[in-house]
C-alpha cells in the first residue's frame, strides 16, 4: 500500500516538484502515472522508494511513514520495493547474471537459493540464455528487461517503473507492459509512469495524471 498525505516536495533552489498531493494506491493495485516530463512523476516515484524525502506531508509505504523514518532504516524499506530506473542503472562491469544477483546479495540470500532466483527472474523476462553476457552487448530492449529482472528478483511487494517504455517501439513496449501486468496478477503493487497515455488506456487501469506537481484536471 502506498499513501501520500498532503505531500510537497521542494528541491533546493525552490523548484516545487510536487504540491500538496494526496492519494492512495491499494495493495495489489496496478496504477499508471501520466504527465509530461517535469510534471513530477519521477519525483513521486523517488519519494515512494525513499530516494528523496518529502519537504512536508507524509509518505506511507507498507504502513511505514517514510517521512518519520530514520535514514538508517530507509534501506530496509527499499529492500521490499523493486525499481525499474529510467536510466536503467545497470552495472557494466559485470555479467547479466551478477547484475541481477546484486539485490539478493544486499538482502543476504543464501547463495544457492539466490542463483535459483536469478535464473528464474532472467527466464521470466526472456533473458534466460544471456546469463554470462556483459550488459554492453545487450540491445536497448534487453537492457530494459535486465533492469526489470533485477527489480523483481527479490520478489518485492511494490514494483515501481519510471518510463519503462520510453525509447522502445510500440510492440516492444507492449511486451514490457504485459510483463508488468503479470507481476500485478501475482499480487504485486505496480506503479508505472509514462508520458505516452495511449499505452495505458488499453489496460483500463487507474491513471494518476500530474501537471506541475498537482493532479491534472
Amino acid at each position: 500500500m502506498i499513501r501520500f498525505d498532503q505531500v510537497t516536495k521542494r528541491y533546493p533552489g525552490g523548484h516545487e516538484a510536487l504540491r500538496n498531493l494526496s492519494f492512495t494506491v491499494e495493495s495489489g493495485e496496478m496504477v499508471f502515472l501520466a504527465g509530461h516530463s517535469g510534471a513530477g512523476k519521477s519525483t513521486l516515484l523517488k519519494l515512494v522508494s525513499g530516494i528523496e524525502r518529502a519537504t512536508s506531508g507524509n509518505v506511507l509505504v507498507n504502513n511505514q511513514n517514510l517521512s518519520k523514518l530514520r535514514a538508517s532504516q530507509l534501506p530496509y524499506v527499499r529492500q521490499h520495493i523493486g525499481v525499474v530506473f529510467q536510466d536503467h542503472k545497470i552495472l557494466f562491469d559485470r555479467t547479466v547474471f551478477d547484475n541481477v544477483m546484486l539485490p539478493l546479495d544486499i538482502i543476504g540470500f543464501d547463495r544457492r537459493d539466490a542463483q535459483r532466483r536469478v535464473r528464474a527472474a532472467l527466464d521470466k523476462v526472456g533473458l534466460a540464455g544471456k546469463e554470462k553476457v556483459m550488459p554492453i552487448r545487450l540491445s536497448g530492449g534487453e537492457q530494459q528487461r535486465l533492469c526489470i529482472a533485477r527489480a523483481v528478483v527479490h520478489r518485492p511487494s511494490i514494483l515501481l517503473a519510471d518510463e519503462p517504455s520510453a525509447n522502445l517501439d510500440r510492440a516492444y513496449a507492449l511486451d514490457i507492459m504485459e510483463l508488468f501486468k503479470s507481476f500485478h496478477q501475482v499480487g504485486v503493487t505496480v506503479l508505472i509512469s509514462a508520458h505516452d497515455e495511449t499505452l495505458m488506456e488499453d489496460y483500463g487501469r487507474r491513471i494518476i495524471r500530474l501537471r506541475e506537481g498537482q493532479f491534472a484536471a
Partner: peptide, 16 residues
C-alpha cells in the same frame, strides 16, 4: 562508486 550508488538505490545498508 557506481556500484555503491546503485546498491544504495536498491536497498544496501551502510554496513553492507
Amino acid at each position: 562508486q557506481e556500484e555503491i550508488a546503485v546498491s544504495k538505490l536498491i536497498g544496501a545498508t551502510d554496513s553492507f
